[in-house]
Computed example of a mutant assay.
Amino acid sequence: MDYVAARKVMVDSQVRVNDVTDRTLQAALMAVPRERFCAPGQAFAAYGEVEVEIAADRRLMQVREVAKLIQALDVREGETALAVAGPYAAAVLAAMKASVTAQEAEAGVFEVVGSALADAGVATVTAPLSQPTGGDWDIIVSEGAVAARPTAWLAALRVGGRLAVVERTGPNGRAVLYVKGREGVSRRELFDAAPPVLAEMTPAPVFAL
């Protein structure tokens, strides 16, 4: 399979037509080998409009959705970025010249994507997704959905920092952009999306009598 040609078709047919106009982002999507982020035997599906398996229950977000999330973040060269359960997004951000760390809860994910992330210059951390590593991030992004406002992720942003994520409590979800200010956090809805919800980011059920 000609992956370079497939990347061009992907950008032309899935990204540009969905109002992703940032040329730096388009170039990054053209440069990052998405097939290296798929489970063994799944590379053939890397450029389709599907959520491709990475490992266990983890899947890549559709490129249309991850591109729109990243565009909303208004990435600037040299910014620090944390990709929580977002290895492909991490590599794209690195191609946009951000300083990126990828965090995963399961080492099995890094067994699949680790070499691609290393080649992209992305640092890796294995830790619970509910506990973001470090702090004062300019950017946090995730390819998985969350079932509730990710307060721990917001706390890890610096003032002026941005978080892009999908919030989903049922069959449908909404991508949202949070911006942290000195007096609080603003929230703006972006578009409909329904990636799988990250189990660690689902609140425990509360029973009432």
Rank of each mutant, 00 (worst) to 15 (best):
S115C: 05
A95R: 04
V84E: 05
A91D: 07
L82Y: 07
M96F: 04
G78S: 11
K97T: 12
L82M: 12
E79D: 09
A91E: 04
F110Q: 00
A120T: 03
L82I: 12
V113C: 14
G108I: 13
A102V: 13
E106Q: 12
V112P: 02
V112Q: 07
A89K: 04
V100A: 07
A102Y: 10
L117Q: 06
L82F: 06
L82V: 08
K97F: 06
A81K: 08
S99L: 12
Y88L: 13
L93C: 06
L82Q: 13
A98D: 03
A94V: 09
V84R: 09
K97A: 09
A105S: 15
G78P: 06
E104I: 10
Y88E: 01
K68P: 00
A89N: 04
G86N: 00
L93T: 02
L73W: 06
P87A: 11
I70W: 04
A72L: 01
K68H: 05
K68C: 03
A94Y: 04
S115V: 11
A120P: 03
Y88W: 10
V92M: 02
A72N: 00
P87H: 11
V84W: 08
E111N: 14
E104C: 07
V113M: 03
E104Y: 07
V75W: 01
E77N: 07
A90F: 08
A94R: 07
D74C: 00
R76F: 00
A89Y: 00
R76H: 14
A94C: 07
A89S: 15
D119V: 10
Q71E: 13
E77F: 06
V112W: 04
T101F: 07
A91Y: 05
F110E: 01
A91M: 07
P87W: 12
E77R: 13
A94F: 05
A116I: 09
A91W: 06
A98Y: 00
A95L: 02
G108R: 14
L82G: 06
E106F: 07
V113P: 01
A95V: 00
A85E: 14
A120C: 10
A102F: 12
K68G: 07
A81G: 14
V84N: 07
D119G: 13
V109I: 15
V112H: 10
S99T: 13
V100F: 05
G114D: 10
S99N: 14
S115T: 15
A102K: 06
A116N: 02
E77I: 11
A90I: 12
A90P: 08
K97L: 05
A81T: 06
A91H: 11
R76S: 09
L117F: 10
A105F: 10
K97C: 01
V109C: 12
L73G: 02
A89T: 02
A67S: 15
P87F: 09
L73S: 05
D119S: 15
A83L: 01
